[in-house]
Amino acid sequence: MMRETALIEANNLSVAVPRSSRWFPSRKPDLDILVDVSVAVKPGEIVCMVGESGSGKTTFGRALLGLVRPSAGQIVFDGTPLPDFSPPSFKRIRREASLLFQDPVTSFDPRQRIASILAEPRRIARSGSVARSEIEELARKAGLVSPLLSKFPHALSGGQARRAAVARALSVVPRLIVADEPTAGLDVSVQGGVLNLFLDIREEFRTSFLIITHNLSIARHVSDRIVILYLGRVLESGPAREIFRAPRHPYTRALLDSEPIPNPAKRREAPPVIGEVPGLAARPSGCEFHTRCAFAQDRCRHERPLQTAISAEHEVACHYPLTPRLTVVGPPPQRLPKTANR
């Protein structure tokens, strides 16, 4: 992947949690949450990481900023690799990156007023002014009116709280914003405002974004590149336009087809995928998606497919990638019997 200009790059990043502890020893091997995930975000680029719950997308965002300790791999920030994964090494990234948490209200101190919450990163970083007028200017940038600055977090509506979180993220002018489900819990009439704000910020500061979401229609509108995660592995990654027009991995296509279409004339006959994500503790053999894949062959059950480049920036991990033409054909020809994975 384009090493030359990436702002932040994860190379074969893995996260594993031990299942054995001092008080509860166990012979079980470590549980792999993320396996060999490689993602690069260029300056001013918006990358969307998409996956179902349990795919490890939130963990990836946190691992990138050192909130979860990676177990293997490498993180390169601004061209220089981190020497190790100790907390001091991550300081360099955290100074220039912000994380938008999934639930903004619980990410605020309930006993601080919004103005103080917005000023806190500047106080910690000892950079930027914490004068009231400057904080008001910051809030205005995120679309918050100044009377809200003297309120406590619980008094804000969902959309306002999200804007306050964005304002806090902007307070030290980050070069990277990791946004975990930035539109979860927002009404459609408001979520566009938050995404437009991201686009404005990118235009003004050339900030890079890693947006973690399960909402594909959002990803379609804002992202430059898409990364599809399944059970902690990247199944497909590439330019957003290409992936939405012609997904090559059967899982990507199933995800796209699962999104209900707001058109009563286009109802589906049957659900595009059956079953659910197998647990991380019971990873299927071979290609991990084979238990739900409509096109699985014998080879898929035994041999894990490797990431293969399809075009310059488009990679897919599948033995039998879909041909672009196939995406317009109706329901898949044969379906595997329903399998219980637990």
Partner: peptide, 9 residues
């Protein structure tokens, strides 16, 4: 999740 949503619907 969307895949489960489709199944429940």
């Amino acid at each position: 999740d969307v895949t489960m949503e489709a199944q429940i619907l």
